[in-house]
Write a protein that binds this DNA or RNA. Structure first.
Lengths: 150, 150
DNA sequence: AGCATATGCGTGTAATTACACCTATATGCG
DNA sequence: CGCATATAGGTGTAATTACACGCATATGCT
């Protein structure tokens, strides 16, 4: 095998990533503001619209802590955009989208599209493509969980 | 000029970026845990160690809201790692690192290094290099602020 | 000198994130 | 059946993030 690096060759990948995430999030949020929804919420809503799931399943897909997802769903439920109903196993909560939620999604979609297009046009199609490729490669390779946490 | 995209070609760049940020943050945090410091705090501390600055200057460099920085500095100050002193202009706060802060940095550096090296070895030197290149390109091209907010 | 404005920073509010831990329910084994 | 354990979810606590706004101080103009 090739010599594994024992000394970092770049700056803090995490810090750079987080900085970019802040910047990009601001762009999307600015575009979505007229619909009074944030990109995090929009993503959650769009994801929920792909079918009913339990909190755990949902959290696993997003690779988000269950408790984080619970908390993030609360404002969406408060707006009446998602439904949280008890499943067959009463321990389960089935997360779904309401009619109002679908309406919201429909209204916000063009705003999200504008944000996404702005980013794509600024970075160039090739640039965004390569960025996405790198992100996906990292998501495919990096461990999902760093601790124990069954 | 080339035809500007009017329809998005990729998924939500923001969501993918945030997902990766979550994952990477968990990795760094897990490595830094023995020193009871999170990667966000470590970054802040390392950045502060580069010289005294006002909150606004600091926030501008990190492209972080001033209020966000204020809040993030609070726990570091509570630990005695950073000093927040009133400047010549009493409106200013000068942010600096304390001796304890430098000690903390020194103790945490090898842990950060391990995290960074782990990421680099998993993604490969070339992979991380390309990821960084894409991040830097995006940071260079994308607008810093999306709203007004002088 | 005095007031309008600009600047610097914090607070209020709210959402995002995660770990540790608790509760409730289900399941498996004697 | 009854109890140990596993599973699903939420709470407590704390940090990260940002917008709107407020307070204090400085600066500029008359």
């Amino acid at each position: 095998m090739s010599p594994t690096a024992t000394v970092p060759s770049y700056g803090c990948t995490c810090a750079r990533l987080r900085k970019l995430a802040r910047r990009v999030t601001r762009i999307y949020d600015a575009h979505l503001a007229p619909q009074a929804i944030k990109v995090t919420q929009y993503s959650l809503l769009a994801n929920a619209a792909r079918g009913e799931r339990t909190v755990s399943e949902f959290a696993a897909e997003l690779e988000m802590d269950r408790s984080t997802l619970s908390r993030n769903l609360a404002p969406l439920a408060a707006h009446g955009w998602v439904s949280i109903s008890v499943g067959a196993d009463p321990r389960n909560r089935s997360i779904g989208v309401t009619t109002a939620g679908r309406r919201k999604l429909k209204a916000a979609l063009p705003l999200w599209r504008k944000a996404q297009c702005e980013v794509e046009s600024i970075l160039g199609t090739a640039g965004v493509g390569e960025l996405h490729r790198r992100i996906e490669a990292a998501l495919a390779a990096l461990p999902t969980t760093s601790g124990k946490r069954t």
